[in-house]
Amino acid sequence: QLRPLYAELQKYGQTQDWDRALKTTRKILGISSNEKKATQSKIICLMQLDKFDEAYGTMTKNANDTADLFFERAYCEYRLNRIEDAYNTLKSIERDLSEREQELLAQVLFKLEKYNECVDYYRSLVKNNADEYQSTRQANFIAALATWK
């Protein structure tokens, strides 16, 4: 019963049709309320739709199913202007940070005016990446350097 709905959700995710994807997560959770993947997907849909308050509330209400969503939690906090919380969430990760976590941490550090550490992250991110955002990342690095000095 859930498989076709998950297939639909996957399709809407691929086409970035977040309104429809959100509706599909609600259908899944209406049938079975403790579907971890549907709960996590719902949060991401809400975030894509700029509903950060609701996304954050959904995380709080489903603490067990969302305990490993460090990036998403920190990004919600960042967008809700809870910058210290975002910093603490990222710093609570007990392993090496993924690239996206480092990218977010660099932005958080900039907002916290911790330019020294921010510049260090950008230096490493610029060096170790070759994706399509590299020139934008370089611009962030330069902006952080210029603001620091």
């Binding site: 993947k37 991401i44 934008t136």
Partner: peptide
């Protein structure tokens, strides 16, 4: 103070659903 480009947002994707479909 300048505002940085938000590159983190580009990394926001659904979890893998391969085990559910």
């Amino acid at each position: 103070k300048p505002v940085l480009f938000d590159l983190a947002l580009n990394h926001l994707t659904l979890p893998s659903l391969d085990d559910k479909v």
